[in-house]
Nucleic acid binder design. Sequence first.
DNA 1: GATGAAATCGCTCCCGT
DNA 2: ACGGGAGCGATTTCATC
Lengths: 155, 155
Amino acid sequence: MDEIDRNIAIALQQDGSAGLAELAKVSGLSVSATAERVKRLEERGVVRGWRADLDPAHVGCPLLGFVFVNLRPGRDDAAFRRAMSRHEHVLECHRVTGGWTFLLKLRVADLRAFEMFMEEELRGQPAVERIESLLAIATEKETAILPVAPATDEE
Amino acid sequence: MDEIDRNIAIALQQDGSAGLAELAKVSGLSVSATAERVKRLEERGVVRGWRADLDPAHVGCPLLGFVFVNLRPGRDDAAFRRAMSRHEHVLECHRVTGGWTFLLKLRVADLRAFEMFMEEELRGQPAVERIESLLAIATEKETAILPVAPATDEE
DNA sequence: GATGAAATCGCTCCCGT
DNA sequence: ACGGGAGCGATTTCATC
């Protein structure tokens, strides 16, 4: 992961459809050398995949909400975690520091769907003790583009 | 946005490198008809772009944190919002319901970088009144793959 | 590991239905 | 609006440095 790999990784995040000719200019290498770099980034697991970035509003999930969850102490949370992983409306599920056990990020069609998720999916989980939710009124920024740290030779 | 578009959109989210031949099998159409569908999804803004999905740990930002921010009442928040949008470590910035004004999602290298962001970037903002932060101890799920609602002819 | 050329694969365009 | 085929640009591979 040298400076060249870093530039390639940054470029691929911003435009995955760039093409090797474009990437070669960014990296300063030849086309085939650039292709080799990209392939190795995939093999090392730096690049996990290639995805189309969709507009939430256009695919019927304009409402963004967060839900804090407290689980009953001593209870096994495996069932809860599996249930959250399976739900397509649960975009994120993190165990967090502070007063709550988990923080969920949800995308749903409307308030009705949001409430239905909480009542049926969360209250239905036996391990769930208490929940608190909040809605995004406006989104200033929402990206999956990661900051790529400069040239630390760690893998 | 019929059922065919929906299937294409779902496939493109899961594997954006699929290729039209693969997509044609999913959609049940010919290659050229599928290409036309994809093009129109881009034109309508359903597909916003194509991106490589990177592993946060491999690019030097393994630490995930959330920060709640309260702004001083009556203050203009434009400067704050612009500052957050510019920061590459701020992945998300939402105005939210409840006791806080904004919720930020951050990706940084380590605790030192996390603290530095809060002290220098947030405390440095004149509009910022109060903040509260929490860290992700473990991530059960973190995806940008959206649920695509079935066949609502809206656009 | 990088380069440049050759072969192969997949996309794009066009026309017929 | 869909399907098929020709043309072309792209990627991938290979020999060489």
